Computed example of a mutant assay.
Amino acid sequence: MKKTVSKLSVLTLAGTIATTAISPSITAFAHENIEDSKSNISVNYNEPGMVSKKDFEEMKREVYKFLVLNEDGTIGISEKMPRSLAYEYDLNSLQKHFDYLNSMVKSGEISINSDFSINQPQARGGVNKVVNYWWGASEWYSYSTARHNAKIASQYSNALVGTSILIGAFSKIGGIAVGLGSVYWSTLATNMNYVNDGNGQRGIVIDMNWAGIYSIYSQ
């Protein structure tokens, strides 16, 4: 009998990525493996890793239904959120992200619209572009920046650089995933290089949610 696989199936690519064919997006590679090997995947949303862009969007849609915009312009989670989903979606981490956003709302750095989109200034701090969202952040890197940041991630996984250097390179993503361990960052570096080296040097985008689940694709 086949095991039932959650719609939030997490594929952690901890091994060597096949490179027999060049792909513009590792998210497509990840999705193919999720679909082809459902019978032997052990899933746990609380083990951060990479998912397909389709599954990443579905996570956001599920949680979006339980967001609330408070009278003071801050964002929160509805009391109607089922307890079972609170665990499945790791909402403790989401609340930490909301605390970060709400502090910027109160200081006047950003404002949150009724559809939970964010009005914000252009990013700064050593990356090409950082965009904050209610669910996490997108970081856009040129080809050369992606290569540099992948190297930093690899060095961090081997304890060759410290936290400040990692966050300096990855900005918001670094803050979300800094404590997720050496295997996580080594795998992220491998995934970044796989997409970055196979897309005609167009650069990459990393979408990362509140719990460190991410999707990587070409600009």
Rank of each mutant, 00 (worst) to 15 (best):
residue 94 L to H: 05
residue 52 S to H: 08
residue 130 V to A: 11
residue 196 N to D: 01
residue 29 F to N: 13
residue 198 G to N: 15
residue 3 K to Y: 06
residue 15 G to R: 07
residue 10 V to F: 08
residue 196 N to H: 00
residue 15 G to L: 09
residue 119 N to E: 15
residue 82 P to W: 09
residue 37 S to V: 13
residue 151 K to S: 14
residue 202 R to Q: 09
residue 63 V to L: 15
residue 181 G to Y: 13
residue 108 G to Y: 05
residue 218 S to N: 05
residue 87 Y to S: 01
residue 75 I to W: 06
residue 42 S to R: 08
residue 107 S to N: 12
residue 195 V to E: 13
residue 178 V to M: 02
residue 2 K to A: 06
residue 51 V to A: 03
residue 163 T to Q: 13
residue 7 K to Q: 12
residue 87 Y to R: 00
residue 122 Q to T: 14
residue 116 F to N: 05
residue 150 A to H: 02
residue 210 W to S: 03
residue 9 S to Q: 09
residue 7 K to V: 11
residue 93 S to R: 06
residue 35 E to Y: 11
residue 69 L to W: 11
residue 2 K to T: 03
residue 182 S to T: 11
residue 41 I to F: 11
residue 189 A to N: 03
residue 205 V to Y: 02
residue 116 F to H: 07
residue 165 I to G: 10
residue 11 L to T: 02
residue 166 L to C: 09
residue 143 Y to H: 06
residue 95 Q to M: 05
residue 167 I to D: 10
residue 37 S to D: 14
residue 217 Y to Q: 08
residue 130 V to G: 10
residue 109 E to A: 11
residue 199 N to L: 06
residue 36 D to R: 10
residue 72 D to F: 07
residue 59 M to F: 10
residue 109 E to N: 09
residue 159 A to N: 10
residue 187 T to S: 15
residue 30 A to N: 14
residue 95 Q to R: 09
residue 56 F to E: 08
residue 117 S to W: 01
residue 46 N to K: 01
residue 106 K to T: 12
residue 198 G to E: 03
residue 29 F to A: 13
residue 63 V to H: 01
residue 216 I to T: 08
residue 161 V to Y: 02
residue 85 L to H: 04
residue 29 F to K: 10
residue 22 I to K: 14
residue 181 G to I: 14
residue 180 L to S: 06
residue 195 V to H: 08
residue 39 S to P: 09
residue 48 P to D: 03
residue 67 L to V: 05
residue 163 T to S: 13
residue 86 A to H: 09
residue 23 S to N: 15
residue 193 N to H: 01
residue 163 T to R: 13
residue 62 E to F: 01
residue 35 E to D: 13
residue 75 I to C: 10
residue 126 G to S: 15
residue 198 G to C: 04
residue 209 N to D: 12
residue 84 S to H: 01
residue 9 S to C: 11
residue 49 G to Y: 05
residue 156 Y to W: 04
residue 97 H to A: 04
residue 189 A to H: 05
residue 99 D to Q: 15
residue 94 L to V: 06
residue 189 A to L: 07
residue 144 S to L: 13
residue 5 V to I: 07
residue 62 E to V: 06
residue 91 L to S: 00
residue 207 D to L: 02
residue 121 P to V: 02
residue 89 Y to K: 12
residue 61 R to G: 01
residue 204 I to L: 06
residue 65 K to V: 04
residue 43 V to E: 10
residue 35 E to M: 15
residue 117 S to P: 04
residue 147 R to Y: 05
residue 212 G to E: 00
residue 40 N to W: 14
residue 192 M to P: 03
residue 40 N to M: 11
residue 158 N to I: 04
residue 45 Y to A: 10
residue 92 N to W: 04
residue 71 E to W: 01
residue 103 S to D: 15
residue 123 A to V: 09
residue 87 Y to D: 00
residue 204 I to A: 05
residue 84 S to D: 02
residue 33 N to S: 06
residue 162 G to V: 12
residue 151 K to M: 12
residue 93 S to W: 01
residue 30 A to F: 08
residue 170 F to Q: 15
residue 161 V to K: 02
residue 41 I to R: 02
residue 161 V to G: 06
residue 125 G to F: 02
residue 56 F to S: 08
residue 24 P to H: 09
residue 116 F to Q: 01
residue 72 D to I: 09
residue 52 S to V: 07
residue 135 W to I: 07
residue 16 T to L: 07
residue 6 S to N: 11
residue 156 Y to S: 01
residue 51 V to I: 11
residue 129 K to N: 05
residue 65 K to D: 00
residue 112 I to T: 10
